[in-house]
Amino acid sequence: MNNDLYTYTLRQADNAMILCQRLCQWAAKAPELEEDIALTNIGLDMIGQARSLYQYAAELSDKDISEDDLAFMRDERQWRNLLLVEQPSGNFADTIARQYFYDVWHLAFLQELVNCNDEMLAAIATKSVKEAQYHVRHSSNWVKRLGDGTELSHERMQEAVNEMWQFTPEMFESDEVDQRLLAKGHAADLSKVKVIWDTAVTALLEEATLIKPDEAFLMSGGRQGIHTQHLGYILAEMQILPRSMPGCKW
């Protein structure tokens, strides 16, 4: 089994799965009906990406497991998602800040991955790029609207940016898995992704009249399975049914 490729695929899948779960918590609660649909649409894009990636990870695994086993039968410490995506949705500005920082990273990451040597990852990335382009458009629009909106929306957006900022450096951490795969041309070059992300985010925050926070204390560990307290609650809600009724179908 190619352990590195398995881990690499699982990390991407877990990001999509957890962020989807967060977005779906807005269903029927978003500030506008239109936005309700928009957020859950983005969530559905992500669950589609997560499924493709879990299927591929299950294939790479030497155990006899399915995509569902990966999504529903793993405990907190076995999850490999970024800390950013598991952060609470908070108010709408918090959700948008989390989403925007992730979307810009995700798009740049996918655009790198499209050219990687692993055919399956490249194919999944090619399909996901179009979705990610729309996600960036959606979230960056809202950052501008809220940042350069009313006094209250500006204040909330700035607070949200400040809060989520500490989870952004983790997105560019490159560990041995990344480095070994990158050497073989199987992975996205995170240093390139970082340059693109920095440029885009700096420009947009300025346009939105928001202050870019200083370098923050680095919160990281998600990709090694060390999570914030929030992930456990997400998993409990997400996994209760398949765990209490194994093999249940409807």
Binding site: I37, A38, N141
Partner: peptide
């Protein structure tokens, strides 16, 4: 409902 054309277009796409 939307506050300007850009948002209307985006919402139309989603809805």
């Amino acid at each position: 409902r939307a506050s300007d054309a850009e948002m209307a277009m985006q919402n139309a796409r989603d809805l």
